[in-house]
Every structure is written in C-alpha cells, then in structure tokens.
C-alpha cells in the first residue's frame, strides 16, 4: 500500500453552504503532506472528517487500506488549530487522561510521558496547572499529547503558532524525526516557508474545491515559467537592454551583485533553449549571473488562488 490515507470524492454541506465539494487527496506513506488553502477554504472540515469529528455527506476515507472506523482513532494524532488544555488540571494528570482516551493504558502512558518530558526537559511541570504555564509551554505539552500514542498519521494544524523561533525549530526537528520513524504527517499552515522546507506533497483547497495537488517538485515544474534571472556586465546597458527587449520577453529583476550589472528576468518561449540564451548573452557581455527562476510555494499559492 503506497498511500496511507485516501480521501475519495468527499463532500460536506452545512445547510446551504457547501464546505467541501468532491475533494480527493492521497497522502503517501511516510511523507509530509501540506494541506494548503486560504481561510475558510474547507481545510479544517476536511481534517475533521479524517478525524471522524464530522461525518462526510458523500465520499469515503480509507486509512491504511481500510475504510475509516472507530478503531482508527488511536492511529491518528491531531493537533487542532483551535487548541487548548484544561486550565485548572495538572499537567501530568491531564496528559495521562488524554493519552488514555487515545487507548493507552495508564502505565504505558506514564512511561511514554516520562520519556517525552525528559526529552523536552519539562519534567518539573508535571504537577503544575496549565494556567501557571506560558502559552509556548502549554503548546509543548499539547504537542507531546498529540504524538504520545505513536499514531500512524499525524495531523498538525498550524503547529508552530505560539512558539518562539527556538522552540519552533525543536518542534520542526521532532516532526522530521517522527517521519523518519515511519509516521505520515499532514501539515496545514499558512506559513509557506515551512511548507517549502518540510513538505513532499501538497494539495491546495480553495472555495471547497481541490484546485491543485501533487508532489511539491512536480507542482513546481508545472508552474515554472521558463524564466531566467540574468546579470550582464556591459559598457552600454541601455543599448543592450533595448536590443534584448526586441528579441525576448524581459522584465526588470532585482538581486544583489558586486558590480553595476544589467539585471533582467528573461522569459523564454517553449522552443527556445536556455543554452542558446546563455551563449547569446555571452556574445553581448560578461554574464555574471544566470539562474532559472523556480516558483516559490508562495507564488504558486497566490497565483493559483487568484486564477480561480
């Protein structure tokens, strides 16, 4: 089985409002899957359907080849965006309770909690109440509780919110390590740089429809504009620019260089080859900079959403 999670043609209506329309996604085993979309697109509804919090009106969800059912609750760890803990309950008691709800026995939960608390160096929080902890500290507890029962599928909705850069890094490393250990991760966030950094696959949901999905690298290939960022040293920059503008589709570029070069973005048509461009540029001046522009997830996100 290649995919851990298969969401097939899932629709969900809330009254007259269609929250999800025939959405399908496939999450490969062992991958980090970015679930992207503007606010109100339907991501949370989809995540809740995977967690069996909400039932879909149509469509099916398969986890590890089996139709989703009650017993799968222990196979999923979910860190919701709207998260919190019982304020007046002690950290340890609370973590034990939540772990037992996920099907761990009391002693199992205790051993694992001890491991994680030692790992995060937070053992002395055990008898504190949540209201005595800072937001970041509470988030750490919440993370531990999410992963404690070693689920096959981890779903993180904005996992880094509330963390300072150091702790955000710790959490990021933990997520990567969990993936190494075999977990599959669904990752929903608006922070595109973390998507860029972590995700292998992405899906973009907009206005209840899936509008883009695939391996991040394939998506990028699809969205590359065949555009090159170039820098040329020339004696007469204006003349060279005019000459190039007649031959190619150009626009101003901005990047940092050591000399005062002519900086341009040059878009090639499908028939033109980058080598030809390079040799042409070489004949006109000294090429100091020649890079293919790879679209960022941010660009892809904005562009796709705007086009719909």
């Amino acid at each position: 089985m290649k995919n851990l999670l298969e969401v097939n043609q899932v629709s969900k209506n809330f009254g007259a409002f269609k929250a999800l329309n025939q959405v399908s996604i496939s999450v490969p085993k062992g991958s980090i899957f970015g679930l992207l979309g503007p606010n109100g697109a339907g991501k949370t509804t989809l995540i809740r359907i995977i967690n069996q919090i909400t039932m879909p009106d149509e469509g099916t969800v398969h986890l590890d080849g089996e139709l989703l059912r009650d017993t799968h609750i222990k196979d999923i760890g979910y860190l919701p965006e709207e998260r919190g803990l019982y304020k007046s309950m002690k950290v340890g008691e609370q973590a034990l309770y939540l772990a037992q709800l996920k099907g761990l026995t009391h002693s199992e939960a205790k051993t694992r909690l001890k491991y994680w608390f030692d790992r995060f160096d937070i053992s002395d929080w055990w008898n504190k109440k949540i209201q005595e902890l800072s937001k970041g500290m509470a988030q750490k507890i919440q993370f531990v509780v999410t992963v404690l029962h070693q689920p096959k599928l981890l779903i993180f909705d904005e996992p880094f919110s509330g963390f300072d850069p150091i702790n955000a890094n710790i959490i990021k490393d933990e997520i990567l390590r969990l993936r190494e250990e075999g977990a599959t991760v669904i990752f929903s966030t608006h922070r595109m740089e973390s998507v860029e950094e972590l995700c292998d696959d992405i899906a973009l949901i907009h206005k209840s429809n899936k509008i883009l999905a695939g391996k991040l690298i394939d998506v990028k290939r699809k969205y590359k504009a065949n555009t090159y960022e170039v820098g040329i040293r020339a004696t007469n920059k204006e003349l060279l620019q005019t000459e190039l503008s007649q031959k190619f589709d150009i626009s101003q570029a901005s990047f940092k260089t050591l000399e005062d070069e002519l900086k341009l973005n040059i878009k090639l048509s499908d028939s033109e080859k980058p080598n030809d461009l390079l040799s042409y540029l070489g004949s006109r001046g000294e090429v100091s900079h020649f890079v293919e522009l790879i679209p960022s997830v941010n660009d892809i996100f904005i562009q796709t959403v705007k086009n719909h």
Binding site: I53, G84, L85, K87
Partner: peptide, 16 residues
C-alpha cells in the same frame, strides 16, 4: 462552556 473556552474540546472529540 469551560471546555469550549479553553479550546480543548476539539482535542477531546478527536478521541471520543
């Protein structure tokens, strides 16, 4: 109401 305002509810009902 407490479970709602403390936002723990979604964590809980993903388990029960």
């Amino acid at each position: 109401i407490e479970e709602k305002t403390s936002r723990i509810i979604e964590v809980i009902i993903s388990s029960v």
